[in-house]
């Protein structure tokens, strides 16, 4: 659906993005992750045909964004970081305007507006002037305008920006609802839970360069911390450590009332081996959990250092 190759954009002497290359398949929901100023918005604007790359190539659904922007614009729905809304219009009226602008046949406009309003939970404010809406509803109208013409590609730039926790959950549900539909979705954010829970795959960008891509688990594995096992064992600390020495690197997390809590670094699922080692040493196994590194710590590791990860 999207093929990006060596995409570079300079603002004066400063490179906002540099040599960006990635592929996105049809139907995927992709999280575009990076700190502020990393180059997410620049990339989305180029894909949305509102910004010219300095060099490189971006192809959307077989059409180059520079040589065939009109064809690309027919296939995309773009929500910029500030939703582009006409405050004096009503919600339904605005969505009908956008649908017509993007080529929806007149006889289908009403149905498409209803469909977009239902997907984004705007039915009850169809007649309300946009100027009277709360920030959360304005964001929803922004998403609705991006999808009212059923585009093949949805580009959502920080859709959760400025939302309160309840609105965030609603926005997450909304984006999750787009999964499996006719859309491919590229959603940028620095709100990690939003990305973690809604996207199939992540693209992590730092200082204009792609530093990693893959699923959350893949990123963890690539960084050598794909998973760990937490174990609670009743017994003496030395005996417990000796029993688990052959399984993998072990860190003692705590010890209280004869119960030792440990963490075994384990990219693969080593729970059977850990269980056998503990029981085989005559110790009591109280708890055995497999965990993976949370997206937040992965994100911080990816965007902090310079040599920890490669695309």
């Amino acid at each position: 659906m999207i093929h990006v190759e060596g995409l570079t954009r300079y603002y004066g002497g400063h490179a906002a993005i540099r040599g960006l290359s990635f592929e996105i398949q049809r139907g995927e929901v992709i999280g575009f992750l990076g700190l502020n100023g990393a180059g997410k918005t620049t990339t989305l604007k180029i894909l949305g045909c509102v910004l010219l790359p300095t060099s490189g190539r971006a192809v959307v659904d077989g059409h180059d964004v520079v040589s065939h922007p009109h064809e690309v614009r027919q296939r995309i729905g773009f929500l910029p970081d500030t939703p582009p809304l006409y405050d004096e219009m009503g919600v339904g009226e605005f969505l009908a305007f956008v649908a017509r602008l993007r080529g929806v046949p007149s006889r289908e406009v009403s149905a498409r507006v209803t469909e977009a309003e239902e997907k984004t939970g705007l039915r009850d404010v169809d007649d309300a002037p946009i100027s009277s809406l709360s920030h959360g509803y304005r964001q929803r109208v922004g998403v609705a305008q991006a999808l009212v013409h059923r585009p093949a590609l949805l580009l959502l730039d920080e859709p959760g920006s400025g939302l309160d926790p309840r609105q965030m959950v609603e926005m997450r549900t909304l984006i999750q609802g787009l999964r499996g539909a006719e859309h491919t979705v590229l959603v940028s954010s620095h709100l990690l839970p939003e990305i973690s829970q809604t996207c199939d795959r992540l693209l992590v960008i730092k200082d204009g360069e792609l530093v990693a891509q893959g699923t959350e688990a893949e990123l963890g594995q690539r960084l050598g911390s794909g998973g760990f096992i937490e174990v609670e064992v009743r017994g003496e600390r030395e005996r417990v450590l000796a029993a688990l020495a052959g399984v993998g690197p072990v860190h003692v997390m705590g010890e209280a009332e004869g119960v030792v809590t440990l963490r075994v670094e384990a990219p693969a699922d080593l729970r059977p081996g850990v269980a056998r080692a503990v029981v085989g040493a005559g110790l009591e196994l109280l708890r055995l959990d497999r965990g993976t590194e949370k997206l937040e710590s992965l994100f911080l590791r990816l965007t902090r250092g310079g040599d920890e990860a490669a695309p």
Binding site: V50, R73, F78, P80, T82, L101
Partner: peptide, 14 residues
């Protein structure tokens, strides 16, 4: 100023 030009720019409008 209002950012609504992006709506027109990203639409298939000449």
């Amino acid at each position: 100023q209002a950012g609504t030009l992006l709506l027109l720019y990203s639409s298939p409008v000449k």
